[in-house]
Design a protein around this nucleic acid. Structure first.
Length: 609
DNA sequence: ACGACGCGCCAC
DNA sequence: AAACGTGGCGCGTCGT
């Protein structure tokens, strides 16, 4: 047995590294007398749990002052035994380690999840802000520094130095570092101890908030999301490869055109602005640092295109602007999406994206590796890469105008409630109230933008920029909007007053605490609405799992659920999904729009067989 | 060479 | 009085 002793938060901690088979006896002896609640952590070769060749290298258990580090290759049975020993475990970000032991040790999410408390979830419920936003932070390091020891480290920096010493980097070091490297072993052992100590402090903080139901709910949701991540989603490799080749060809074609105008690097804003000025174009917008702005909207203007890439026919299209726009788009779609699909797939051509259940300040979920919540929706080709399992079809259900409905429920403005309950198009209703019976399509667009502005906290200037309508007209529309729906404005005022203008958090109907930034208290309405809409979708996911629909679920996308099922069952499964999503929220009907897509996700966006 | 950071752009 | 929210990620730039 190898030992390390270290000071942590004013007391000594002991880290024991199991080296030989006889050391396991000491681990056994410790575990059977150890506290019921133990910290657990793993060290692995990387983050891509499902990639070929992936390995879990170390497994660590610990209490407040003692940790055992086990090498999984040697002592996998002891690790499994410990995980099944009836203890409860504290894990920081169980969504990761839980899937690691599910995939690589066969200790499943189903058996372990009920015995786990995740400090990431607790931390987010105490304070969802990152350090940079003025919060405590939700990572192991900031939590350790805040709750355990001002000088605590999660070892990332120290390990990075070790990686460098062996000619590795952050990406390769975790797989390459010697398994008996002392820095590696020490920090591996510290992590479960930190998790336990952080847990106790967070549990104490949560006691005051009376949100035990949220703690339980978020763990339940996490389990459902982990099963979705484990299931993964199949990709059509030949389609993806062919589309890549096509987009790469397009990018190359347009790069060559740009090069003819002196732009050798289409990502260099400097080259682009200089070349455009050289062609006699006038650039009027500047970036924050004073450089000429040549972003998408500026280039679209020069290329005579509107925001939807449709010709405006107001001028001759600048060929350089057009070439840069198209080259950039093709390149981004190729690398950020299609390339990632192929790189991140497992041996069975499935993606297992990381689904963060409690990610944004508002609790909104995120999906990364690859980022499947942000695939282009303007066309179907990228989404066409995601396909249903054999014999199945992709189905989806999205909430209809969920944020406006939530806003109506929370502010109870009579006209807004009436507008939603009447079932008429909300933006038509608003335009009629604001501009009268004979409103034009332009006025409807303004009314729609004002509505979004209310949800996001935007003002007249932003709406002017978006719609192109004159400022005076936008201001008039906002005034009329406020007069029509006074409850929305009142909600914002009430929230700011109730929170002491940012000194207290906004509390959502679910009990979630949402701290405000003092210089942006106008965001209170948006936080409340966004978070509550998220809670509705999260509850629907948990309900679907309880209703036996879990096996169909693929992805959550903010206000919609992507799923799959055998074609013959599509109507029935969609009905079940709708039953979980739909309902009454504070007197406002929440309704979803279920749809059968077809063989691929792209089939919901225009792809055909 | 690597990593932190700002910008821009994709989504809802 | 006015103030557009939440993410992920690839690129270029800059600092180590």
């Amino acid at each position: 047995m190898k030992h390390y002793r270290q000071q942590l938060g004013g007391s000594d901690v002991d880290i024991n590294v199991v080296e030989r088979d006889e050391d396991i006896d000491a681990f056994h002896d410790w575990l059977v007398t150890a506290p019921h609640l133990l910290g657990f952590d793993t060290e692995t070769t990387g983050l891509d749990i499902y990639s070929p060749g992936y390995e879990v290298r170390l497994a660590q258990f610990g209490d407040h002052r003692t940790a055992y580090v086990l090498r999984v290759e040697q002592h996998a049975e002891a690790v499994k035994w410990a995980l099944r020993s009836g203890h409860r475990f504290v894990v920081h970000n169980y969504a990761f380690d839980g899937l690691v032991v599910d995939r690589h040790l066969g200790v499943t999410v189903e058996e372990l999840a009920p015995n786990v408390v995740d400090t990431h979830i607790l931390a987010h419920l105490v304070d969802p802000r990152q350090q940079a936003e003025g919060g405590i932070g939700t990572g192991l390091k900031p939590l350790a520094q805040h709750y355990v020891d001002r000088n605590a480290s999660d070892g990332q920096k120290e390990l990075q130095a070790e990686f460098r010493a062996i000619g590795a980097n952050k990406a390769t070091g975790w797989a390459k570092i010697n398994i008996d490297n002392p820095v590696y072993e020490l920090y591996a052992g510290l992590d479960p101890i930190l998790a336990v100590r952080i847990h106790d402090e967070l549990a104490l903080a949560l006691k005051d908030y009376d949100i035990e139901h949220l703690v339980e709910f978020e763990h339940e949701l996490q389990r459902v999301l982990m099963l979705m991540q484990r299931r993964g989603i199949r990709i059509d490799v030949p389609w993806t490869s062919e589309l890549r080749a096509e987009l790469q060809g397009e990018a190359e074609h347009y790069r060559a055109i740009a090069a003819r105008y002196g732009v050798s690097n289409i990502n260099s804003t400097k080259q682009i602005s200089e070349a455009l000025l050289g062609m006699g174009e006038t650039l009027t917008e500047h970036t924050a640092s004073g450089a000429y702005k040549v972003d998408k909207s500026v280039l679209q203007g020069l290329a005579d295109l509107d925001a939807n890439w449709k010709p405006l026919e107001t001028r001759d299209s600048n060929p350089l602007a057009e070439a840069v726009l198209k080259a950039k788009r093709s390149e981004k779609w190729d690398t950020a999406y299609l390339g990632a699909f192929l790189d991140l797939r497992d041996a069975d051509d499935r993606l297992h994206p990381t689904i963060g259940g409690l990610q944004a300040r508002t609790g909104r979920m995120s999906i990364s590796h690859p980022p499947l919540q942000q695939l282009p929706s303007s066309e179907w080709r990228i989404r066409r890469s995601m396909i249903a399992d054999p014999g199945q079809v992709i189905i989806a259900a999205d909430y209809s105008q969920v944020e406006m409905r939530v806003l109506a429920a929370l502010c109870q403005d009579p006209n807004l409630v009436d507008a939603i309950k009447s079932g008429t198009d909300l933006h038509d209703y608003t335009a009629r109230m604001v501009f009268g019976e004979d409103f034009t399509s332009k006025q409807r667009k303004i009314a729609k933008s004002v509505g979004f502005g209310k949800v996001y906290g935007g003002g007249a200037a932003t709406i002017t920029r978006q719609t192109g309508a004159p400022l005076a007209q936008v201001k008039e529309a906002i005034a009329a909007y406020d007069a029509t729906f006074p409850g929305i404005k009142r909600l914002g005022h009430d929230l700011q007053r109730q929170t002491g203008y940012g000194s207290l958090p906004v509390i959502t109907p679910s009990g979630r605490r949402l701290p405000l930034d003092r210089d942006r208290t106008y965001a209170a309405t948006n936080y409340l609405v966004q978070s509550t809409a998220r809670d509705l979708l999260a509850q629907a996911l948990v309900d679907m799992d309880s209703a036996g629909l879990g096996e169909h679920l693929l992805l959550p996308v903010h206000d919609e659920i992507i799923a799959q099922c055998p074609e013959a069952d599509a109507d029935e499964v969609l009905r079940g999904i709708a039953e979980c999503m739909d309902g009454d929220f504070m007197g406002i009907p929440i309704v979803s729009d279920p749809e059968k897509y077809g063989r691929s996700w792209g089939h919901g966006y225009g792809a055909e067989d």
